[in-house]
Each structure stands twice: as C-alpha cells, then as structure tokens.
Design a protein around this nucleic acid. Structure first.
Lengths: 198, 198, 198, 198
DNA sequence: AATGAATGAGGGTTCATTCAT
DNA sequence: GATGAATGAACCCTCATTCAT
C-alpha cells in the first residue's frame, strides 16, 4: 500500500473511532486495530493522537466550509435559491458522511482549549457570513429589519439542531426535501400567523 | 462547616472546574484544591469523579428544566407572554450561572454513552414540548402551518446558539431585552419581508 | 457500658470479622459497625488495627495453650489418659469457639514477619513439648523408637488437620469421640497391619 | 528476550516476592524491580496483581499434584514403595523449590474467598485420594481397621507439618532419608510399643 | 517502511489514623 | 469518654509514546 493511501486509511479509521466513541474513549489500539496496522506504523504517519484528531477536524471543517458559498446578489441564482443550494449541500454532506456531523456538532466540544477555539472560530466565521448576508438582505429590502446577529444565531443554531436531530440522532424523521423546505419556510416565514410586535 | 454545606462547596468547586476545563482535563486534585479539602474528604461526599459529574449534571438539568413551563392556552398570560417569560427565565439563569450553560451546551457532550443519552433525552423532551406547543398553536390558528418538528428544532437550536454566543462566548453583544425581543421577533416574524414559498 | 466491657466488645467484634474475612479484608469500618461504636472510640481502646489483631492473637494463643498440659509420668492419670484429656480439651475449645481455630490455623499465616514469627514460636513450643513427651515415652518404653522430632510434627500436623477438616471446614464428618479415638488409634497404633521396616 | 521467557521471568520474580513477603506486602514495584522490567511491561503479561498470583498458584498446585500418583495395587511397585516414591517426590520438589511450599502451605491462606476455596479443594482432593488408598488398604488387609478419613487427615497434616518444619522453617533438622523413613515409620508403625485401645 | 514489545508518567481511589467538638 | 468528619500517604492500573529489530 502506498504511504499516502495508508495515511488516509489510518485517518479514516481514526475518524470512525472518534465519531463513534469520542476522543477520550478512543484509544490508539482501537484506531490501529480498525486500520489494520501496527502501533509503530501509526506514529510513522501521525505525531500523536492529538495531531490526528486535529488533522481530521481540519479536513472536516474545510470540507463543510466548501459546501457553503457566500450569497451574492448579482449572481445567476436568486439569493433564496443560493441559500437553498447551500442548505442542500450541507445536508447532503452530513447525510452522506454522518461522522462529519458527529465530529463538528458533538464530539469535539470541550476537548481542549485549542480545539474549542478552532471550532469557535469556525462557527464564528459562519455566523459572520450569515450576519453579513442578513444585513445586506435588509439593506436591499429582501429581509425584514431584524437584529442581524440574533438572526444569524438562529439560522445557524436552528439549522444545526435540525441536522443533528434528523441526520445524526434520527429523532426527527424528516426527508431531505422536507428539511430544506421546512427550514426555509420557518426561517423566512416565521411562526406567527399575523404580524408580530405591531 | 456542616456536612451539607461542605458537600455543596465541593460540588461547586467541581462544577467550576468542569465548566472551565472540561471533564477529562479536570483532576480530583483541581477540585479539592479549589474546594480547600483533602483528597479523602472528596470521597467522603462523592463516590467518584464520575458520580460528582453526574450529580452536577442532574442538578443543572433540573434547574434549567424548572425555568421552562408548558405553555397553556387558557392561562392568565397569553401564549406569547408565556413564551417570552420562559425565554427570559432561561436567559437569566444562564447569564447568572454561565457554568450551567457550559455544562449543558458544551462540555457534557461526547463524554460517555450514559451522559450523552441523558442529555439527548433532556433535549428530546424539550423538543417534544416545543413541538406540541407549535402543533397546538397551529390548531388554534396562532401559528402558521409549518412542520412542527422542524419548527421545534429551529426554536431550540436557535435559542441555544443565541445563548451560547451571547451569554457564554460573548461574541454576540446583545443585551437581555434585545435577545428576548430579537429571538421572538425572528422566530415569530421570520426573516422575509413578504410571504415565502407562496 | 464500662470501659473494660466495651474493650472486650470491640475485641470480640474484631475477632469475628478477622475470622470471617481475614486480616486484610477486614476494615476498621466493619469492626466498629459490628461493635456498634464510633470510629474514634475504636482508637480509644486500641492503638491500631495491627494492635487489636495481635491482642486477639495473644489471647487465643494463650487460651489454646491453657488447654494443653505437659504429660507427667507420675501423675494420677496415665500418660495415655493425659494425652487424651489434652486432645479433648483442644477439640472442645475449637469446636466451641471456631474463630480460635480459624485464627490460629488459617488466617494469621503470612500476614507479616512479626505475626508469622509469633505463630512459629507458638507451634515451635508445642512441637518441643510433644517431642519431649515422645522422647520420655521412648526412654520409659512406652513409645517405640522413632525419630522424636518427626513424630512430633506428625502428631501436631495430623491433629491440626483433623481439627481443621472436622471442626472448621466440616468436610470430615467425625464426632467428638470418633475424633479422639481415631486420632489416638492412628497415631499410637499406626496404619500397618504388620510390623513395618522389619 | 522472547516474550514467553519474559513472562516466566516476571512470574518467577513475583513468586519469589509473594513467598518472601506474602501477597499484600508485595507491591507491583517489588515485582518489577526484581524482574528488571518497567511497570507497563508487567501489565503487558498479566492483567493484575491478582491474576499473576492465581497463575502462580495454579502452576504450583499442578506441579505439586504431578508428584503425587494414585497408589495402584497391581503395579510394578508395592503400595508401600509407591507411597514412599510419592513422599520422596514431594519432598524433593519442596526442598528444591521452597517457594512452592511457602505458597501452598502458608501464604495463600485467608487471602480471598476464591483462593481459599481453590486451596481447600486441592487439599480436599488430596484427602480424598489418601482416604481411598487407606480404604482399599484396609479391604486388602494391608492396613489396620482405622477411620479412613481420620487417617487421611493425619497422613496429610503430618506430612505437611514435617515438610514445613524441615524444608521451610528448618526447625526440624532432618535429612531427606530420615524424613521419608521417619514419616513412613511413624505413620505405618504408630507410636505405641504395644497395641492400643485393645 | 513496518513492527510490537517496552516504557513510565500520571491519575483515580482506598482506608488506617487523627483531632476538634 | 465518645463522636465522626477530615486527613493524606500509599498503591494499583492505564495508555500514549518510543525504539530496537
């Protein structure tokens, strides 16, 4: 097996272990057993348990990041269509590789200061992006006058919870289309039957 | 110091340590140093590190649970007022005792199967509660026809993210009133200026 | 309760615990629970776990010792009768207070150098006593010419094993009379139907 | 060093420590210091202190057991010769490896219920074996009519005590031949010059 | 590159003993 | 005398990492 292939195989084994049992409950023994390599081999490819975790985290963050495109106003698709496309890509990614969701939404939190900081920055950048889109939407009259930061939190948190419940925990039995439609419907249309706050 | 007081003191020290560094990074030595007791004293009050963590988790869950009342239709307050009161109580709790938020929103996830299951059930029950409220709201014409489960996820996840960002991470500099108003405004009124999806 | 009575009560509780679970498996908590006294009270009467064990051992050794009288030639009873009386007294003691047997035959061995040494000396003195009796018996023509030390070992070990099996483990279902008769019969008469070794 | 050799080396170090200081007084540190391995290495070969103790106990029991052959009537050697051969083999074993005697006669008693039970069963099976031999001896007229269970206890206990005193404690300075001859002489011929109890 | 035996720092827990009340 | 909360030294075991082959 080519070195690069072996490295990927080990990383995949590790990702599966981490996703299944979490960082601390995963031992190097689990990873090498799953990857079918010897203990020493593991350390030929990764300096430490910590390092492989971070490498996986990096890759998952950027993979997820890649699915999310900034919403442009003058593009081919309307902003709503762009938003829908973003949502669909993320849903498809997490549905297809649930370990990414487990990693980024569940396991990696509270592990250590550095990891926490990375995740915080990642979600912070998503929030900033959403906030900016909302602000621009407001200035173009596409979005109601709402607090952009608050709205961004709700969009991000709401979407994440929906993904966790439906794609990871499976407690919300919602199909892909229903998820996208429902998410957009609720976020854009709101819950109230009539205008709120006057 | 009375035994009960000492037990509380140790639990508080532990909660602070767990909130600050997470479960694994917290050593018994940290807890007893913070509580100012000897090693043996800790085990006089708690059987193990695991047990004290669970005890704290239990208490935090029920404290948080206590802030959330089922929304009744025929009560003194209107459903919207009841919802606002719930939101305010939770915000006040987490603002006043941020370690509760850290515990329930961050640290406790991915620790061990039993803890995960407990948190999942807790959030599951919140989701069920919200879902039911939404369903009832729909049947009474107070809420638009939306997917109640999807809506519940968005309400829960949106609220949680807002709390995390504003009360814990402080990246969203939003005051209490702005949080409540913003949350209710966005969730009930939606983002779109005009009706969406027809 | 009078101090002396309390001390005895604690010692009895300890003896029962030691006999039942052995030295190491017995915790101070077990002893005080059984004696119904507080932890501090225990240390008012005994300096340490070690000390109470030794005190009990001492008492048991001397109680057992008291049952064994040196066999005198010119006494009222014949040497055989004196031997029988010794055997009967020991059997009665161990049958009536099996914890003495457990202590002296089982638990106390291998605990620590000092205890081992005490037991060894105790058994050593018994061996010496028996050896002397055998030697005198030989010189008076009451006992065959045998190696007195070897004979002493066999007498002591044989008797002890019989006691252990019948009075403690109950694997040899032998009544008191059968024990005494059997022991004396085998030891004095030997197993062989005809003269051995020429 | 080959793994199997290392395992044996650790076991031997442990056996020496246990024989010298007993189970509880022996620390893992003692064993690994004696074996010249690191702490982790110990646990590579044995799951726990308890396990290595049991492993050694097992081996010693079966080694001892191997020296003792059932006495057959129609064999090449006479029953008396077979008995003598058994005795000689056991004496040689315990003399050559005194730690076996310490283990089986001393240390392992009162350690824990399971160990006690194992030893009890081991000695019980020896007793049964001896008892059967005595019974058969009686029915063939080779042995006097005695209580076979009582006789078995005396044979076993007498032999054990002789071994302890001569090969382990060295308080009975008896050579190998004197031990065998003395033991057989006393057990078969008895102490009394004339028939006892009629 | 690959292996897997060896390492040892580190942490959770126990329990005999002390001491203030 | 009596109490029982507090103490802390001691010890077993784990597991990420190393290194000789």
């Amino acid at each position: 097996m080519k070195p690069q292939k072996r490295k990927v195989a080990i990383a995949e084994a590790a990702a599966a272990c981490f996703a299944e049992h979490g960082y601390h409950a995963t031992q190097i023994s689990d990873i090498i057993a799953r990857a079918g390599v010897a203990r020493g081999t593991f350390y030929l490819y990764f300096k430490s348990k910590h390092e492989i975790f971070n490498a996986i985290l990096d890759e998952f963050i950027s993979t997820l990041q890649d699915q999310i495109k900034t919403i442009e106003l003058g593009a081919d698709m309307s902003p709503a269509e762009q938003m829908r496309a973003n949502v669909e890509r993320v849903i498809d990614l997490v549905t297809g590789r649930p370990e990414i969701g487990k990693f980024l939404f569940n396991e990696a939190v509270g592990l250590d200061k550095a990891v926490d900081e990375r995740l915080r920055r990642f979600y912070g950048s998503l929030l900033d992006m959403i906030e900016k889109s909302v602000s621009r939407g407001i200035s173009f009259g596409l979005v109601r006058k709402v607090d952009p930061r608050v709205a961004a939190c709700i969009v991000l948190g709401g979407f994440r919870e929906l993904l966790i419940q439906s794609s990871i925990f499976k407690t919300a039995k919602v199909g892909r289309k229903a998820m996208v439609d429902g998410l957009i419907d609720v976020l854009l249309g709101g819950l109230s039957g009539k205008p709120v706050l006057g």
